[in-house]
Every structure is written in C-alpha cells, then in structure tokens.
Design a protein around this nucleic acid. Sequence first.
DNA 1: GACTGTGAATACCTTCACAGCA
DNA 2: TGCTGTGAAGGTATTCACAGTC
Lengths: 213, 213
Amino acid sequence: MIDPAIPRLYAYHRALRESQAAGKTTITSHGLAALLGHTITSTQIRKDLSTLGALGRRGQGYAINPLVEQLAWVLGLEHDWRVAIVGFGYLGHALATFITSRESRFKIAAIFDRAADVIGTAWQGIVVSDITEMERIVQDAGCNIGVIAVPAAAAQAGAQRLASAGVRAILNFAPTTLHLRAPVIVRNIDLAGEMSILTHWLTAVDAADEAQA
Amino acid sequence: MIDPAIPRLYAYHRALRESQAAGKTTITSHGLAALLGHTITSTQIRKDLSTLGALGRRGQGYAINPLVEQLAWVLGLEHDWRVAIVGFGYLGHALATFITSRESRFKIAAIFDRAADVIGTAWQGIVVSDITEMERIVQDAGCNIGVIAVPAAAAQAGAQRLASAGVRAILNFAPTTLHLRAPVIVRNIDLAGEMSILTHWLTAVDAADEAQA
DNA sequence: GACTGTGAATACCTTCACAGCA
DNA sequence: TGCTGTGAAGGTATTCACAGTC
C-alpha cells in the first residue's frame, strides 16, 4: 500500500532543508547519508533520488535547491493542507502546536473534543467544537487530513465521522485498529507498540550478553 | 536492525488482551486477522506465532492465555521498565499520561525540562528536574528507557545525556536525526514524516483520479 | 579522481499450497 | 472437516559492482 521509499524521501527532504538553512548548496549521497546518521546507505539514497529523475552531477553531487523542490513535489508538500484535530487533551494540544510550528503547509482548520469545559475555548483563533458537529464543520473548513488524539474507546466513532465528512487521510494515535470501508488511508502511531520494540530489543541484547558470558 | 515481525507481535498481543478481557479463551488465526481489520493475513499470523513454538491446536485454534504470556515474554513486557521523560511540555505530559495509563509495566521514573517555571513542579509525585542534572538522577532512578519530547534543537544534547547515563533505548519525537555512538537503539517518531506519507498518498490518488477522468 | 546512475545479484519478507493433526 | 505448521515459490526491496560522466 505504501511505498517504503516515501519515509526515506521525507527524511532526505528534512535533512536537505537543514543543509539549506546552513548555507550549503550541494551535497553528495555520502554526505547526505552522514547527515542521516548512516541509517540509510549512500547507494540507497542514489537509487531513491534517481527515480525522481537524474538530478545529480556525476563527480560533483546534487544541487540542494532543486532536489528539495522535487522532493516536496513528490511528497505532496506543495499544496496547503487543512488538518482537523479530534481530541484536544494534552496530546491534541501538543500535536496542534507541533504541526503548525514545523511545517507551514499544514494548517489546523478545526478542533474537536467531547468535554464540555474544553468546547468553546479557542486555540490560535480556532474554537473547539463538539464532536457531534464534526461532519458539518469539517466540510465547511475543507479539512483533508484528520488526526485522532482521543482515547481508544472513542477513536472508531471519531474516525467514522471524519470519513463520512470526506476526510481521506487519518493519523491515528489511539491504540486501536480503525475499521473503515471508505478509501481512507490510515497511519497508526502506536506509542506502546514502539515501546515494545525497545523493550524487545533491550531484552534480546541482555539475553545475548548473558549467553556470551 | 529490527525484525519487522515485532510490531506485528505487539499488535497480536494487544488484540488478544482485548479478547481476553471480553471473556474469550481461544481464537483462530482467521479470527485474529479479523480483529486486526485484515491488515495482516492469517497465514502471516500463523507464521509469526509458529516461530514462538507450536502453540496452536490443529483444528481448534490458539488458547489465548498462554499466547498472551508468550508474546509478553518475547516483547520484553514481563519486566518492569523505568522511563525518563525529557521535555515536559504538552507532548511530554501527554506521553507520561499515555504510557502509565496504558501499560502497567512502564513506570515514569524521572522527568526533565529546561524551563524554570516547570522545574520543581511535580507530576504523580515525580518532581521535574533540570536537564543538567540528568546523568545523576537517571542513574539513581535506574531508568532504562528515555523519551525525547523536546524541540529539535535540544534533542541531540538530551539524547547524549541519556546515553551517557546508561540509557540504551530512546524514543525520539524530535524531528531530527540523533547521532549516538553508544549501543543505543533509537526509534524515531516523526509526526511531520507521517503527515508526508498521507499527503503523498492523497496527491497520488488525486493524480490517478485525474488521469482516469 | 570523484561521484552519479543502474542492471544484475542478493537478501529478505510474504504468500502459496498442502501435509499433518485433532 | 477445520485449522495449524511449514517447505517451496514468489515478489519486493536492498546491496553490489561497475559503466558513465563531469
């Protein structure tokens, strides 16, 4: 469903923009790999970039500016995107701040919560609305991306409302599987799952150490 | 570096615990696939589970209880883990709540921030300390997992402090590449990167629609 | 000399197909 | 019959090796 190159392309985009900000104008595939902490090989980088067209100069490296532009284009970062946040607790709040501060192409266009004491308050000029009004407000605001930041129990209902309002891309922070039939892409960010990867690795390393001793 | 089966195993673990809570005692690979919204095939599930040992009964399915135990063991969820949170803004706060509420094996054992008005305040009995004191406090508290929830500019310094205090697993929410030489596993959760995957997909779908029209 | 671009080789992961059991 | 467990097949992503270019 999703090409594994895309997250890499985004990583390049980010690293290159940092280089750009630092005043660099060209970079080699090796240099980029170093910026990324050698989590990606230079060969991989060249393969990925070559699929975007031949943007490098043999013997020289890549010109950063056109590369950043090309990557932004492929990643869909040339449009503006309007984001609806569902759930405005600490997490929702953090995400709203994060999204707007980092990537100017993303605008928070609607915020929803269920708690009476949160509804009606405003954040950056956006009034928090009741979840039951989602369909109407999401459509009026023209949101095309939804972020689920509610507890697991409320996630499915929230996602359905987003989908029926026409949102086709959802970032889900609730630790539950969303069941949607519509053509919606869902990215799950499962904190506990990520923690498990760490704990698995830690125990695996410990076991290896003991076996060696 | 990390086996792609691990996130799946965690997904099984989660779904099975839900089944357990619902009073079920056995499940088939098909049933589990359905719980997961068919994001994983039943064949894949059987392959994964068979690597843990032959836990199923042919013709019957799997007994849930031993399976959950086995999965917890493989994932390292049998120990208790002590987590240090670096950065206690909205995000750090959200993560602290999330981690403790969800998985009883994870205890927040130390919290750090740089802002004077946050240092000294307490959360669930844990006093927020200055980042400069990290080495000592992390070691005293016996933290084995660190969570980076500070802005990108401060992430590298925080991670280095964690690593030098002996933390070997870091969950990084800052949108930057951490450069650590020690044997530390880092999982990056890059919100903007995830958003890019969505925007790429949305633009790709739009392009396909237009081509068809 | 240095670095890109890419066909070929490899390694990896997933799916298929079916044997084995209750 | 129903479902697991698994060798074999298939597909996909990564790495290698080197030709091509500045």
